[in-house]
Design a protein around this nucleic acid. Structure first.
Length: 595
RNA sequence: GGUUCCGUAGCUCAGUUGGAUAGAGCAACAGCCUUCUAAGCUGUGGGUCGAGCGUUCGAGUCGCUCCGGAAUCACCA
């Protein structure tokens, strides 16, 4: 519709003023609610072409359009704005057109489609997932679906930080204090089980350190010299040396954690195509660094440590290998990137990682480029903001973290209570009830997190997140369920949306509003992919649901006696349902048939 | 201190490449179920878009300065 108008205006300008308007002189936008019309041409930029005032220009173009374009049924000029009214019948034809499109809004990857690797989640194996990971997982997974919908080949990937001092701490504590307990003997979820020993380690360490401080040590010395800490370090050295007992303990405890993570991932509904482990990739990283050193891209200091000098790019010098030859964080990320490129030859690689690591990813991409890996130009850091609580930042040291599993359980529980109170669960068996409440609880949680611009820090207010009214996931799910209910009833009574008649209706204002939104969907998906913003999809779904609910409230669908109109409204509802379902799908939110 | 990001209604957030009188939800108050699902719909009140200067026909949006907050600048990850 917009393109139609665009060419029309271009013709008008040529015919009226004998000049060609450039793309950025043709500013078309949606007409604001308080004015009459559908699309608005901003005439200010054209005034220089027409040599007339913006008002006069707008008026002349409006007159031309009304005379030459069938789709244009009227216009008005306010200041320098030309508000064009599209004939309502034109919108009916639009509905007919888009409802014939298979997988509306989703592009099929063509031969020239890009391969996009998306890394998200990236947990440490010493403790369970928390609220921060939830934002990461939801953003990453949603983004992966959005990129797919925009016509890319997407590889979902995860990097598990399975080695290092943190897991050694849990291992030491388990060895000393567990008496052979396992998740199986205690009935505890594996990641929580291992996390408990990490916490226990820190607690015992604190006690040891306090004794040393009392004996005159500085806090730093105390932590460093405490027997437990030294034991953890010995453990790490043994691990790196490949000591069989240590390695098998490490494998056992990590396997417990993975079992736990799997449960959480399944509950969240996120998936991966390929999982990488840092215990594999750090070695490749070291090789790459050493090779690059040989090629003269890096510098070795007297103490043997290896650095890259990025001062020419206004960054600092960055350590790539310690003086003892061991790898740092950057080393393994270099390795992981190279392995992934060899695996997939991606065009783009998106890292979904918090904004605290902005600097790290700048350095990562630059370093790879310096080393001669040109594909590193396709590395993007999808940097999202922190999640804070109403009382401030989450602090794992003080136990002020929101556990992922707890949160999911609470949301589901709230949904169950709420559904019961509203009497929504009649006619369901237990399995169905549980499933529907799970869908709603998770829908609320996911939407609450995804509706916020990813770049911004956000406040997670527990009381607000379980609200199911207004701008929430359940509101959108509810709208979808309502539509399904209508469709079901239509099927039962044999009413059908006859496509050939849909385009012949003159829709009312509310109906036009809905169609306009439906018409926006494909462009919005592309925009969300380019801008890497699930929030765009979320807010669109809300707007569409709200607009549809108004229509639903004001007009009857199945009760309409005019057959053509009833058919049209049914098709409008069906299409809205499809788009809502697609939008929710892109957010990783399930759309319940009934609620 | 350097770099980056953020600041919009009491609270949580939208606000397209600069466009008209800055929008939702929550909370508060007042209405609407004999009807396709009231997890809905309608209405009322609520703003110095952190402050100032500049660019522009036009600035919440762009530039500069300042104020406030966050992150980062590790032989941590």
């Amino acid at each position: 519709m917009e393109n139609l108008l665009r060419t029309g205006i271009r013709e008008a300008v040529r015919s009226l003023y004998g000049k060609d308007a450039s793309d950025d002189q043709l500013q078309i936008q949606k007409t604001r609610k308080e004015f009459e019309g559908d699309l608005t041409l901003v005439a200010f930029p054209l005034a220089s072409l027409s040599q007339r005032s913006p008002e006069k220009t707008a008026g002349e173009i409006g007159e031309y359009l009304a005379a030459h374009l069938d789709a244009v049924s009227g216009y008005n000029v306010i200041k320098g704005f030309l508000n064009v009214t599209i004939a309502p019948a034109e919108w009916a034809r639009t509905l007919q057109e888009i409802s014939g499109v298979t997988r509306y809004g989703f592009m099929v990857p063509g031969p020239e489609a890009e391969t996009v690797v998306i890394e998200y989640s990236s947990p440490n194996t010493n403790k369970p997932l928390h609220l921060g990971h939830i934002r990461n997982n939801l953003l990453g997974f949603s983004l992966s679906r959005i990129c797919e919908a925009a016509g890319n080949n997407v590889i979902r990937t995860n990097i598990v930080n399975d080695r290092g001092i943190h897991i050694c701490k849990s291992m030491v504590a388990w060895q000393k204090f567990a008496n052979g307990a396992t998740p199986a003997t205690t009935g505890k979820k594996g990641d929580h089980f291992v996390g408990d020993y990490y916490v226990l380690f820190e607690k015992q360490l604190r006690e040891e350190a306090e004794k040393l401080i009392a004996a005159g040590a500085t806090p730093e010395e105390a932590r460093d010299n405490a027997p437990l800490m030294q034991e953890a370090r010995r453990m790490l050295v043994k691990w790196e040396a490949g000591d069989p007992d240590t390695v098998s303990l490490w494998q056992m405890m990590n396997s417990w954690v993975y079992e736990g993570f799997d449960v959480t991932y399944r509950a969240l509904g996120v998936e991966f195509d390929k999982i990488y482990y840092e215990s594999d990739t750090y070695k490749v990283g070291k090789e790459i660094v050493l090779r690059s050193l040989g090629e003269g891209h890096l510098v070795r200091r007297d103490d043997g440590s290896v650095w890259i000098d990025l001062t020419a790019d206004k960054l600092d010098q960055k350590l790539l290998l310690r003086s003892d030859g061991t790898a740092v964080y950057m080393t393994q990320d270099l390795g992981t990137a190279v392995i992934r490129y060899n695996d997939y030859h991606f065009n783009r690689h998106i890292y979904v990682v918090g904004n605290e690591q902005n600097y790290h990813f700048q350095v990562l991409a630059l370093t790879l480029l310096r080393m001669g890996y040109d594909w590193a130009g396709g590395l993007h850091h999808f940097s999202y903001g922190m999640v804070e609580l109403p009382e401030g930042k989450m602090k794992s040291r003080e136990g002020k973290v929101v556990d992922a599993d707890d949160l999911i359980a609470e949301m589901t529980e709230t949904a169950t209570v709420m559904s019961q109170e509203l009497g929504k669960l009649g006619g369901y068996n237990e399995t169905e009830k549980r499933n529907i409440c799970r869908q709603i609880g998770l829908g609320a949680l996911k939407y609450y997190i995804l509706k916020v611009d990813p770049r911004k820090n956000m406040t997670f207010n527990p009381a607000e997140s379980i609200d199911f009214n207004g701008n929430t996931g359940p509101f959108i799910q509810y709208t979808y369920a309502r539509i399904r209910s209508v469709m079901k009833k239509a099927g039962e009574t044999g009413v059908k949306a006859a496509n050939e008649t849909v385009g012949g209706v003159i829709p009312n204002l509310k109906e036009v509003s809905v169609i306009k939104l439906l018409n926006d969907f494909p462009a919005l998906v592309r925009e969300a992919a380019t801008g890497m913003s699930p929030a765009l999809i979320a807010n669109y779904c809300y707007e569409l649901a709200r607009e549809f609910n108004q229509f639903y409230h004001d007009f009857t669908i199945l009760g309409e006696s005019d057959e053509m109109l009833r058919s049209f409204r049914l098709r409008l509802s069906e299409m809205t349902g499809k788009v809502l379902e697609s939008g929710l799908w892109l957010l990783g939110i399930e759309a319940p048939e009934r609620m």
